Amino acid sequence: MTENWRDDEEYVSYIEDLLATDEVQRLANYTQHMNSTRLEHSISVSYNSYKLAKQFNGDARATARAGLLHDLFYYDWRTTKFDEGSHAYMHPRIAVKNAEKITDLSDLERDIIIKHMWGATITPPKYKEGYIVTMVDKYCAIKEAAVPLVDRFNSYKARLKKEWN
């Protein structure tokens, strides 16, 4: 589903300026959910959220841009700890600050980024686009972590079946 994002001219027009920045490209240097980079994850969240925003008459541009920037931070979330709060609370705030260094954020984009961890944090999104990015982020995280594990399990199961026959 996400593989075809480059062929979607409208989507690319919304995010190409962000993708051209070193700040966004640096996300390729960080593992996100075991089997993907933070950049791959962010593009997946962005593109899938953009498509849903279009389907539900939301602001597709803001959704695409905020989806791409929602995890714009540069540390290993598994090991870095904060005195101010959990990673779920801190990284959206860091992402907003980092995003504001490379682009002007609308109130909608800021709300989407800050509240995309709703469920792990208390305050829900203010806009439907925020709910879209929140849910797509969870979906992508599960898919990125689980699909390779399921594939490995199925390979193992097939190998065992072959050995038993």
Rank of each mutant, 00 (worst) to 15 (best):
L39R: 08
S44Y: 02
D137T: 04
E163H: 11
K126Q: 08
E144W: 01
D104K: 15
D59I: 10
L27H: 08
T121L: 00
M135A: 11
I122T: 13
G58V: 03
H41Q: 11
N57T: 10
L52V: 11
K54Q: 13
E144K: 10
I112G: 00
W77G: 03
H116K: 10
E163P: 00
D83W: 09
A99E: 14
L69Q: 07
Y14I: 07
D71M: 02
N35H: 14
E163M: 15
S49N: 02
G58Q: 06
I114H: 00
Y14H: 12
K115A: 02
Q55P: 00
K115L: 02
H91L: 06
Y14P: 05
L72G: 10
D59R: 04
T79W: 08
V136G: 02
L72A: 14
D111L: 00
F82I: 10
W164F: 14
V24A: 03
D111T: 03
I102W: 14
M90L: 11
Q55V: 04
S86Q: 04
T103I: 15
F82M: 06
N165M: 14
L149W: 11
K143S: 08
E3L: 15
V147M: 14
K54C: 08
K115W: 02
A158P: 06
H116R: 00
R159P: 01
H41G: 05
K161R: 12
Y74L: 10
R38P: 05
A28D: 15
D8L: 06
A20G: 09
D151P: 04
W5G: 03
T103Y: 06
V96C: 12
G119L: 07
L27G: 07
T31C: 12
S46D: 06
T80I: 09
Q25V: 15
A60N: 03
K143R: 15
K128A: 00
E40Y: 12
K138Q: 10
R93N: 08
E9G: 03
D83T: 15
F153I: 09
K126D: 07
A20F: 04
D71H: 14
N165H: 12
I94E: 01
F153K: 15
Y75V: 04
R38W: 00
A60V: 09
V136D: 04
Y156T: 14
T63K: 03
V24M: 08
D151I: 10
Q55W: 11
K161W: 13
Y89C: 02
L39Y: 09
Y131I: 02
A62I: 08
I102P: 05
A66W: 03
Y47N: 09
H116M: 14
K143G: 05
H70P: 06
E163R: 12
A145N: 13
E3F: 14
A95L: 12
D59Q: 09
C140V: 14
E10C: 01
I112S: 00
F82L: 03
C140W: 03
G130Y: 00
L149E: 13
A141S: 15
K126S: 11
E40F: 06
K54H: 05
D83S: 07
V24E: 04
I142L: 15
W164I: 15
L18I: 15
L19R: 08
V150W: 07
Y75K: 05
D22R: 12
Y47G: 01
M1W: 00
L39N: 11
T63C: 12
V133T: 02
L19V: 13
T21H: 08
R6M: 14
D17P: 11
K51W: 01
A88H: 13
V12S: 09
Y11D: 05
P148R: 09
A95G: 08
S36T: 08
